[in-house]
Computed example of a mutant assay.
Amino acid sequence: MKLHRPVTGGPCWTELGTSDVEAAKRFYAAVFNWRPETDPRPEAGGYTIAHLGDAAVAALSPLYQEQQPVAWNVSFAVEDADAAAQQVRAAGGTVLLGPMDVFDVGRFTVVSDPTGAVFQLWQARAFPGAGLFNAPGSLGWVELMTREPERAEDFYTSVFGWTVRTQERYTQWGIAGEDFGGMTTMDDKFPPEVPPHWLPYFAVADVDTTAADAAGAGGNVLMAPTSVPGGPRIAVLRDPQGAMFGVYLAGQEG
């Protein structure tokens, strides 16, 4: 992505909700060389932040609700979580949880767009979000998978004011033209039980090696390493607990 730090309206964080945090720690350490640190406070509920060097790059979290799926979640930065939640409702989305405070680090809410894709809004206080973007092992792109692209475009441009750049088969989102993500239309290749969702992509030094490492650590390769015409080399993977994520060759940001 063209963004190199969290900015209002852009992706600022990604976290994994998983059924087995300890297994996820081992898997992502093997795939991305992350160094996980679990918050020792009981009230933190086992929330674990993954680091590259001193930079926080992602989080691993237990499932906090009975119906919560194992999945990666994407957070977008807002100035006011309560006001942003109201904007989501006004644009046809749904507020699923919050807004609520997280210690002194920020205020968040979980919402869904009108097509069913869930994401989070983050109002930063002590914690602005990821300390590193686009470097190997860190977040570098976010992609909306939806069956209703026109409805999604209306929603996100209304709520966030994103710029939209549409190519022949792909739509890219941006902040004042600085692209950070895209949108793919879910066609018949997607099983009907797969809901609309946001998919994070992490930068890697070698897509083929990362895919092999993920498979070797117990994950699955859902989309084999592929060079997109006019775009990056990418793959889509799934961790042993079932969460999907993408990887792309670092330096090929959109």
Results as ranks from 00 to 15, higher is better:
176 A>V: 00
138 S>N: 09
154 D>F: 05
150 E>M: 09
142 V>M: 06
203 A>P: 08
69 P>D: 08
86 Q>D: 06
252 Q>E: 15
194 V>L: 09
66 E>N: 01
158 S>K: 14
93 G>V: 12
66 E>W: 00
153 E>H: 09
13 W>D: 07
231 G>Q: 10
190 F>Q: 10
130 A>D: 02
196 P>R: 12
233 R>F: 06
216 G>C: 08
177 G>H: 05
51 H>C: 00
217 A>S: 08
24 A>V: 03
107 R>N: 07
137 G>K: 09
189 K>P: 00
120 Q>M: 12
175 I>F: 03
209 T>I: 14
239 D>P: 00
51 H>V: 04
179 D>M: 12
181 G>E: 10
203 A>D: 05
16 L>W: 08
58 A>Y: 07
220 N>I: 01
197 H>K: 12
93 G>C: 10
164 V>P: 00
117 A>I: 04
80 D>H: 08
251 G>S: 11
115 T>M: 06
117 A>S: 01
115 T>E: 14
80 D>A: 00
198 W>I: 14
244 M>I: 11
157 T>Y: 02
185 T>H: 15
58 A>R: 03
231 G>H: 12
152 A>Q: 04
253 E>K: 10
33 N>Q: 14
242 G>V: 13
18 T>Y: 07
208 D>P: 05
197 H>P: 06
146 T>Y: 10
219 G>P: 01
143 E>W: 02
119 F>K: 04
26 R>E: 09
167 Q>N: 10
99 P>K: 13
244 M>N: 07
241 Q>G: 00
231 G>L: 05
151 R>A: 11
249 L>T: 13
221 V>Q: 02
40 P>D: 10
132 L>Q: 11
44 A>I: 03
192 P>L: 13
211 A>C: 10
69 P>H: 04
52 L>Q: 15
227 S>I: 10
87 Q>M: 10
113 D>R: 10
202 F>R: 11
21 V>G: 04
18 T>P: 10
151 R>P: 02
24 A>R: 11
187 D>V: 06
91 A>C: 12
70 V>D: 05
110 V>G: 00
85 A>E: 01
233 R>L: 01
213 D>E: 12
81 A>M: 09
94 T>K: 13
252 Q>G: 07
221 V>C: 05
145 M>E: 01
124 A>D: 00
234 I>V: 15
146 T>M: 02
107 R>S: 03
244 M>L: 11
141 W>I: 01
58 A>E: 13
120 Q>S: 14
90 A>L: 12
175 I>K: 06
64 Y>T: 06
232 P>E: 07
12 C>E: 09
222 L>D: 04
140 G>S: 14
165 R>Q: 12
125 R>Y: 08
144 L>G: 01
132 L>D: 07
189 K>S: 15
128 P>A: 12
205 A>N: 13
218 G>T: 06
